[in-house]
Design a protein around this nucleic acid. Structure first.
Lengths: 345, 345
DNA sequence: GTGAAAGCGCTAACAA
DNA sequence: TTGTTAGCGCTTTCAC
């Protein structure tokens, strides 16, 4: 005996609609896709019958037949920042508009999980992938299967040049420069940099911007003022601790992540340091938290929603055949320094 | 001519494996499912061939054939809180362990979006649903299609009694009581309550707990000290404003959401009010933000991860036929008051 | 322990 | 404008 789950409402197929109306299943199929080749009246009748009978289309059958899933996979290195949720909102909106589903994978800054997500998406047969790389991703070979099957890849924020893929990024060098330059202009002469691993190019670029700004402001570079960590809660703590233990403390800090900056700031304040009077602080991302901490945090803002929209639009245009195949490109989005209390002394 | 996307690596099916090995496709299918009826050696050979040929199983075909998707849909009213991400982590872990996929829908506190997500999940043919209701959800009819098809439903946190569904919740009355009682014990005599719409039962219950604690501590209830809003940024602001405009300000506030509490606190501080000296504050949820604000926020903690695990385990056991069909039940999870600086004066 | 064959629900080429 | 039909890749009954 075939074990079947007790079904209360029976499943309605296009065949049921067809026989109900005395039509062929293909006519129903076409009508349900709003194919103009079918008589408008027939289309209406079919739509009504579908509604009436409680038809729900079986996407598994559709996907099996069409060999497409209308699904795009998104891999993000974190989930809780305002930036990432904005990007996801942007992608989601464009995708929904174009009739694509999205599935979200979370790497938690680990290549291993990133690769697992990529594998998962590959097996789910996504039509395209949008990704921001994890902190420690150096080898991109887990994206190879997509390349091999001509599945388009778009990177945003944390991106690396890849053959046949697009990237949507900000000018991190300029951001690093502006943040540092701002601190210098406010009178800081010992500017610390707390940032991520320089193997991740965004951090390398912010570092280069930092160096350039120091140089342009005639501030000598001091190795001991550069701290590299994961920019998480622990990273913020560590940075604060290191700074507290310095004989010559910095008078300005550029931390390339708002959350880490908030943690660090809090820690410094608990040790009696006044911000911005003793040490000015600049973060990165313009997360919601910036306006909640005391003093409010100066930071670099960049438009997450817009980046998401651009990434999705690019990918989907490609999938729908609107743009040509090999338009591997780099799209640079504007960013800006948002000055708040934490750097105004 | 059939339009086919240019395929670089051809797709491998069980037929390719079968003919490669001189076997029947059914044998391959069984072997790939690790069916013990197939000779162990044959199974090994088939696994090797699958690997070698780069086989990836087509879940769309599987789902079409088996009429199950091994997918569970999750609807959450928000995404960015620590509580929700913990729940999702808990569900995700149990689901992965049991070979289920999850898809996440976000209602942003709106019934309309909640219903849209439900519809979407229904059309995606999820095997089960886990949900926390939006702020303004009163009518649950958008879950009816699941009931009609015997698709199991589990609610967590924001739940309503429904026939044939399970709920995983905390004792909100007790939480409301404890928070209020704590403030009273610290000497507060005018305790404000900022909470969500009482049509959502969790808020009604916290309100009842508040009332009970007032009564037990011989504090008269004052209507003007109860503020109802959406507990978002705007809600926090509004509450602060209302309080600042009072002639007789409260000396304690219980805001049933940490983020709103943080916003409110900040606003009050900006107006020169000292916390906890002038006004003590208790939040709700034990979000990360509690430790970042100054002073650190007293709150109600409850175990998100565990609630997620319980919800998922329950649902999946049901789907896999481990538990009987109609065990509609209510599971109550422990919660506790976490005392920090914001209420210690 | 393995094979043959039907069919899940749909789309699209081809025919009418 | 509509109908006929093959087949997407898999599982599972039934037969051997």
């Amino acid at each position: 005996m075939l074990m079947k789950k007790e079904v209360i409402t029976p499943e309605v197929t296009i065949y049921d609609i067809a026989s109900h109306l005395g039509l062929a299943s293909s006519t129903v199929s076409r009508a349900l896709q709003n194919n103009p080749i079918i008589n408008k009246n027939t289309r209406k009748k079919i739509a009504a019958a579908a509604e009436e009978l409680g038809y729900r289309r079986n996407n598994y059958a559709v996907n099996l037949r069409t060999q497409r899933t209308r699904t795009i996979g998104i891999i993000v290195h974190e989930l809780k920042s305002h930036f990432i949720t904005s990007v996801l909102a942007g992608i989601g909106q464009v995708a929904a508009q174009s009739g694509y589903d999205i599935i979200i994978g979370y790497s938690a800054e680990s290549v291993v999980k990133e690769a697992a997500n990529a594998r998962n998406f590959f097996h789910k047969r996504v039509d395209g992938v949008i990704a921001s790389l994890a902190m420690d991703t150096a080898d991109l070979s887990h994206f190879q299967p997509f390349q091999d099957k001509n599945i388009p890849l778009v990177f945003f924020d944390r991106a690396e040049d890849q053959p046949n893929s697009t990237m949507v990024v900000i000018d991190n060098t300029r951001c690093g420069y502006e943040a540092t330059h701002h601190l210098a202009q406010r009178g800081c002469r010992r500017i610390a940099l707390v940032t991520g691993n320089r193997k991740r190019n965004v951090y390398e670029q912010r570092y280069q911007g930092y160096l350039q700004a120091l140089s342009d402001n005639d501030i000598p570079f001091r190795e001991e003022l550069v701290m590299i960590n994961d920019l998480d809660e622990k990273g913020g703590m560590q940075a604060a601790e290191t700074i507290l233990n310095m004989k010559d403390r910095p008078d300005g800090i550029f931390i390339t992540n708002d959350f880490a900056a908030a943690v660090c700031m809090r820690q410094l304040q608990d040790a009696g340091i006044r911000i911005p009077e003793d040490i000015a602080v600049v973060g990165f991302n313009d997360d919601n938290i910036c306006k909640l901490v005391n003093p409010q945090l100066t930071t670099i803002h960049y438009p997450g929603k817009e980046m998401g929209e651009i990434a999705a639009r690019n990918l989907i245009d490609h999938l729908d055949g609107v743009t040509s195949i090999s338009n591997a490109s780099r799209i640079i989005v504007r960013s800006q320094l948002v000055i708040r209390e934490s750097s105004l002394h």
